[in-house]
Design a protein around this nucleic acid. Sequence first.
RNA 1: GGUCCGAUAGCUCAGCUGGAUAGAGCAACAGCCUUCUAAGCUGUAGGUCCUAGGUUCGAAUCCUAGUCGGAUCACCA
Length: 467
Amino acid sequence: MLAWKKWGEGVTPQSSGKKGDHLVGDFYVKFDKEYKAEINTIIQEKLADYPLLKDVRDFKATLSGLKNKKKTKEGLNEQEIAQLKACEELSKYAENSAPLILEARDMLLKWEAKDEEVYSDWKMMNQWVYEGFDVSYKKLGVDFDKIYYESDTYTVGRDMVLEGIEKGVFYRKEDGSVWCDLSDVGLDEKLLLRKDGTSVYMTQDIGTAKLRFDDFDVDKMVYVVGNEQDYHFQVLSLLLDKIGFKWGKGLVHFSYGMVELPQGKMKSREGTVVDADDLVDEMVNTAREMSQQLGKLEGYTTEEAEEVYQMIALGALKYFILKVDPKKNMVFNPEESIDFNGNTGPFIQYTHARIQSIFRKAAEKGIHVGTEAPTHVEVGEKENNLIRTIANFPNAVAEAGKVFSPAIIANFVYDLAKEYNQFYHDCPILFEEDEDKRMMRLTLCKTVGKTIKNAMWLLGIDVPDKM
RNA sequence: GGUCCGAUAGCUCAGCUGGAUAGAGCAACAGCCUUCUAAGCUGUAGGUCCUAGGUUCGAAUCCUAGUCGGAUCACCA
């Protein structure tokens, strides 16, 4: 917001034609860049004040060099330890005295005091972001039952922290900041309110937690947040427990791994991210090209076909993410675009489309497929495998729920599709001459189709009838 | 340094509540469309399941130690 005020020259999503979240993201990156530049300037200026660092030319390299050496076996000698300390002191000083951060803090104070100008600007920019998000969420088929805004919950959190002081579970330092001592459980002290009285992330989460438990009569709450915040949620759970909420200890932090690029982590502050909107658009294009090349959607109107391309693109993307164990970090290479063959969403969607095609053909021949298969029909190996796999669906779902892993369902449905394709390849279905056998196979197809559809639905992926 | 997580084929990942020859996909190579959709199917090649100990009739799976990689330990969110 500060960056926008300083350098934005009043640009808006409308005037720039950019999605609101992207526009604000650009300023986020801009702020980080300028802030870092200021820090560097200050460090260069102040370097002379540190006798220990007078020989240092490249501050960054020295600091990271010392840090890395600290991790090695030989460690640091006394002089180096002192140097490292001086480096850390200096960078902390620089981080806290850069004009930009001071301005930003001032702005936050004004914001919490509901200063008119700051507050209305903030509201406007917030709106831009939410509108941008809404577009993306809608495209992805994501919706929310209820949204809590930190801006509405931080006061609740602050009141609870103040209450906590009265109860004696938190305490105030001389400078006015509020802390909780967690050394009894082997952790550090945790800041809950800054000395200027403004709230921090943790304060807001305490407030949000209370509101959520008040609003919904639940006995368990699952926080789906990345594993970089493991510590945060461990502390949150302890704090809520200390404040006296019986559900404090029962918080479930569903901690998922990060998606990394081949070059390393994505950082929104540095702008090294893959944009979901672009990614989806690209994949829709791939799906369209591929489909038109194969001529699979003849007889569909343009609108119908576009719907299918969208379905395939989203299926590919969602499946790609969901098939790996959510706890693990994963690597995504945007250069190698997401595959549509093999263990992918489109492969499974394709299997479903194939099955539906059989039923279209069956209907032409006037064959009605019920839900009951004829008994006393000989069942071959492929059919047997299929039946066994389908029978395992409830277990897979239960297990996935138990361990919070959509990947289990994804792997299940991939196995099923793979086995079905083998069966499809080896066994005649409509061409089968034995009527009972044919009906048994058709019933099997029907069940497989339904199971695929259900499993994919659990993953939030639609399946087409033709592709 | 403390805490936590990870390491399986060239690459991306399954398998991990102990059980038979460790599996997929991609990439490579060789096949299969006058039959229900070839976005499919079949085959070949590719592995010290990070290392060393231990528990066990049996370990990729459990335990201990180590190596490497990541996260975190902010008056950031």
